[in-house]
Amino acid sequence: MNQSFEIAHTCESILSKIATDFVGLALQNREGPDVRWHYAAGNSNDKYKKITVRYGKGIAGKVISTGSPITINNFPENIHGKALEYPIMLAEKLLYAFAVPIFYKGAPKGVLLVGRRTNTPINKEEQNIVRQAAITLEGMISSLF
């Protein structure tokens, strides 16, 4: 099984393990600070393939710049900045998102995001499944750098 297939399989398995609508994997570009969405499961369109976010911007950019998870509830209420600064939420019409960092050589280089199109947060147990999947993905993303 090649790594791309394994990564896609891991994203899809999260979708089936927890009742979520969208799973996406974003990685910082090999060169430069920008971040792109590489894999998605449960996506309603292909917009994610064209979206590039800047380091520190959007959910993916913020998770990578801080190295910490981010939760968004009832988007676009109570967000920092404008709704337009959260392109993946708009593109996939998500109301809820939980995103965790993926580390490569000790530095946050990627993001695993799960989202719902209803404002229904995932529970602690489901959050742990996402965190565990992020750790699994850490061993797979080396080929992408």
């Binding site: 369109n45 917009k47 994610y48 064209k50 979206i51």
Partner: peptide, 8 residues
């Protein structure tokens, strides 16, 4: 715009 929102 396209690279931000994925809309052509």
């Amino acid at each position: 715009y396209t690279s931000t929102y994925g809309i052509e």
